[in-house]
Nucleic acid binder design. Structure first.
Length: 490
RNA sequence: CGGGGUGUGGCGCAGUUGGCUAGCGCACCUGCUUUGGGAGCAGGGGGUCCUCCGUUCGAGUCGGAGUACCCCGACCA
């Protein structure tokens, strides 16, 4: 069933229409591949932001903000870094417009050409490290643990809603440390923080691992990531954390004096997650009726739909709902009463299901008489009749139950679509079917590349809890020490 | 950047060999009846048919150029 969903164009819009306007500003090439995030979609992002921000601060980080524009010369200081991003940069060359001499609109004023072009940040390592140079002089200034919430622009050849938009919102952490060991620990801690966030809040099971050299971030010594499996069998990199070694410190000449009075380069990390997480959330859980949101990230937990004939009845039902709404509020549950009188209840049910609201409460005249209420779950689409008394206690429990249930469903899907494979023929078969494929790899870039060319599968990661297991490379037959995860990726 | 496709009210589309006043469904507005799984009837509003150039008595329809978007590859969080 899951495969049908993502292959059907109308389901794509079924899932996304409540959250964003897809490439809404046509006729303007400058907004190619961008998206307008609607209030309901943005509310989900805000909930993610709030939780992540809290977790960052609890682990000792602070927020800061750096400029959107990066002088071209900054970007070119780290060789690998610029290699990785040069092909996808938006460049500002002028700072003024003027009326077109022929009277038709405005044109770029040729006199307003910038001496040095500015790059719209594709990521902020360079501009941040040019500041760190001035901020870090002594071991007492370390570690420096900063994060920034920002937008970035990457002019990708091909865009895809949520997963690869030209402009996207994200957070990027940039830390500086006195020792190699401490920086590695930071990078690992952050990838595990992302793992916890995905599991606990997004109800999304992820695999934590290390990237192969070929998949590593431009300028990193080591890249860690969380990898999730979507319902169509494709893998999605949902967050990354990089150990940058001393590459940026050397490129920007950031040295500090140690306790012993020696001059040393600092060690760095960077890590980030983006609005891609919203894509992951949607693609991992949603069904043919629309979005399925985990309660911990749902902007609205409970929607209450009144059943009524005439204004009098509506008033009586809504009165009771208002009381329940307040009782739920005290328990941290956000409820919405849908008292629109121009729509039938069936329409409302369908509409709120599209939006993924976890719990629906239906109350009508019969319930008022019998002291009952109908409670429906979005994740299982089941309904139950309950005694009204005590629902304010029941609903928070139900929300917890739904959160767990969504996670477990996603987990069993992943487990049902994870395979250990030992021969290349089966490997190719499984790649076609989709899912995570655990296989032995000889560790060479050549093999990785050949497999990619032949099957389109890439090494998603080398899992962290790598059990040492003797084996032979699926492709070359050379000895291997453990399995890595292959999959087709977005 | 290669290959394919599509541009017609807010959304989804029809309009087939050029022809009369450019249609349909959904949405929207008004009224009445409805409301326990996407309501019914009646009335109403809303269009530079992507742009420019050309062919023609006449172009949504034919030709050329441009442009935007979508899908598939290479690239990527």
């Amino acid at each position: 069933m899951a495969k049908e969903i993502t292959e059907r164009e109308d389901n794509y819009s079924l899932w996304y229409n409540n959250l964003v306007v897809k490439s809404g500003l046509a006729e303007n090439s400058a907004v190619r591949g961008c998206m307008v995030i609607k209030p309901y979609g943005y509310a989900i992002w805000e909930k993610m932001q709030a939780q992540l921000d809290k977790m960052f601060k609890e682990s000792g980080h602070s927020n800061a903000y750096f400029p959107l524009f990066i002088p071209k010369s900054f970007l070119s200081k780290e060789a690998e870094h610029i290699d990785g991003f040069a092909k996808e940069c938006a460049v500002v060359t002028h700072h003024r417009l003027m009326s077109n001499p022929d009277g038709s609109g405005v044109v770029v004023d040729p006199d307003a050409k910038l001496e040095e072009e500015l790059i719209v940040r594709p990521t902020s390592e360079t501009i941040i490290w040019s500041s760190y140079k001035n901020w870090i002089k002594s071991y007492r200034d370390l570690p420096l643990l900063l994060n920034q919430w920002a937008n970035v622009v990457r002019w990708e050849m091909r865009t895809r809603l949520f997963l690869r938009t030209t402009e996207f919102l994200w957070q990027e952490g940039h830390t500086a440390h006195a020792t190699r060991q401490e920086a590695i620990e930071e990078a690992e801690m952050m990838v595990h923080l992302y793992e916890e966030f995905a599991k606990e809040y997004m109800a999304l099971p992820v695999v934590v691992g290390r990237k192969s050299a070929g998949e590593r971030f431009a300028g990193a010594v080591d890249t860690y990531s969380i990898e999730a499996l979507m319902q169509d069998g494709k893998a999605l990199q949902a967050g990354t954390s990089h150990f940058l070694g001393q590459n940026f410190a050397k490129a920007f000449d950031v040295q500090f004096t140690t306790k012993e009075g020696k001059l040393e380069y600092v060690w760095a990390t960077s890590w980030g997650v983006s609005t891609r997480l919203m894509g992951a959330l949607v693609m991992a859980h949603s069904d043919n009726n629309g979005l399925v949101l985990p309660p911990k990230l749902a902007p609205i937990h409970v929607v209450m739909v009144p059943i009524f004939k005439g204004e009098e009845e509506l008033k009586r039902v809504v009165e009771k709902m208002e009381i329940l709404k307040l009782e739920l509020k005290e328990r941290g549950v956000v409820a919405k009463i849908d008292d629109r009188d121009n729509l039938r209840s069936g329409f409302k049910f369908a509409e709120w299901e599209l939006k993924g609201v976890p719990v629906r409460v239906v109350l009508g005249p019969k319930d008022l008489q019998n002291g009952t209420v109908e409670i429906a779950r979005r994740d299982t689409l089941t309904k139950e009749q309950r005694v009204f008394e005590g629902v304010e206690e029941y609903i928070p429990q139900l929300l917890d139950e739904i959160q767990k249930s969504i996670y477990n469903k996603a987990l069993s899907y992943r487990e049902a679509n994870s395979y250990s494979v030992d021969d290349y023929a089966t490997f190719k078969e499984k790649v076609e079917e989709g899912g995570f494929i655990y296989a032995h790899w000889d560790g060479t870039a050549e093999t990785e590349e050949q497999i990619k060319i032949e099957t389109k599968a890439t090494i998603r990661c080398i899992p962290m809890e790598d059990k040492v297991e003797e084996g032979r490379c699926i492709y070359s037959g050379k000895p291997s020490q453990g399995r890595v995860i292959f999959a087709k990726a977005y």
